[in-house]
Design a protein around this nucleic acid. Structure first.
Lengths: 201, 201
DNA sequence: CTAACTTAGTTAGAGGCTCTAACTTCGGGG
DNA sequence: CCCCGAAGTTAGAGCCTCTAACTAAGTTAG
């Protein structure tokens, strides 16, 4: 009763989410251009016209997958922070590690999340939600509430680093003798170096 | 006599390169999935079947574009090194800046260069050629010829940083109040910080 | 110089994709 | 209970990739 959830009834009830899920799996399997709406339809057991009741076009489905990705990433950040002292280097590094791990676990979705030519408001917002978690910890690290230039001046390079590391990792550049440290070590080390010279007090 | 180079003669003489050029322009304009072989054919003034005499499939055309990209990037590195002392921080930062500038000037091609699911040997090699230029300068910075672990331990984080910065920049994250410094300043600063504590002598 | 071969084009068409139009099913509110 | 709207359906237009079979032109060997 659980796996092919439907198709006893004509009205399927949950097609939107099921298409997102199917699309996500297909994208992860074959990349965003290997994916076809038709194939997602076959997976969900509906006709190829059905998706257009829920999405404007192919792109909108992919955007929905990307949004789901940002949501999960934000969750992962909060999870990573659970046992870390607020505003500690450990907390900041933990976010970085969670970032790269998300990318490694969902490489094609991760790529997609940043590759849209025309991003919607909603997507920008999800992205900023994610980034905000990092900035919050850095503000705490600096002992302030407000997210001002000082926070950005530290946060942006750190984001840059973990973003780059994510891409290199999913493109297989971390294994082949190109790196020396493990991913986690690199994030910790970079956090230390990129945040040093801050918090002069 | 120069721009539409052909089509007086049946044998076109230069179709392979012309398709690569047309594809590159189209990819830059609409992204790699907006691109269609057919459209490149129309641009080159040949039938839609012609490309298959030069390339196995659509993907192989895109790969050729990516390879061209790596070639240009390597060139850009050498150019950037022209007036910099061998192995200086300035030289190393100049490569980083050239890296990001290439990405900014060719965002979609840049994305593609790293996004292939199955990379060919040739592509891996082009990529390593590029990376090698950076590693060479870092070796020089450390006063050695050989590219050993010490060189990688510095080179990889730096690559990571400029790679990340490239992606953030082409995704428009550098303008919108998320960053504080200019791209060039960030690269110089990161170079300094990520290479500090090295060269103990 | 020419015949034979090879290379690089051509047209035709199969099969897959996205998306629209028009129709159908079914659940819910008055 | 009937009607309406939401969420399916089938049919099909128009685009795409790639193949098969053919043809034009350049190259080489005798």
């Amino acid at each position: 009763m659980n796996d092919v959830t439907a198709k006893t009834r004509y009205h399927h009830g949950d097609l939107r989410q099921q298409l997102i899920t199917a699309t996500r799996a297909l994208v992860e399997e074959k990349g965003p251009d290997g994916f076809s709406v038709s194939e997602a339809c076959r997976a969900a057991g509906v006709s190829t016209a059905a998706p257009y009741k829920h999405f404007q076009d192919r792109t909108e489905i992919l955007q929905a997958v990307a949004m789901e990705g940002f949501g999960e990433m934000t969750e992962a950040f909060h999870l990573a922070l659970k046992d870390k002292p607020e505003g500690s280097l450990a907390a900041i590094a933990a976010i970085g590690i969670a970032y790269v791990r998300f990318a490694e676990a969902n490489p094609e979705v991760f790529r997609m999340m940043f590759a849209f030519k025309d991003k919607t408001e909603a997507m920008e917002a999800s992205g900023m939600g994610c980034y905000g978690v990092l900035l919050g910890q850095i503000a705490a690290y600096l002992g302030q509430d407000e997210i001002d230039e000082a926070v950005l001046a530290l946060g942006f390079p750190l984001w840059t680093f973990v973003h780059g590391l994510s891409f290199l990792s999913i493109d297989g550049k971390c294994e082949t003798g190109k790196a020396v440290l493990t991913m986690e070590e690199m994030v910790v080390e970079a956090t230390r170096r990129l945040l040093s010279e801050a918090r002069p007090a």
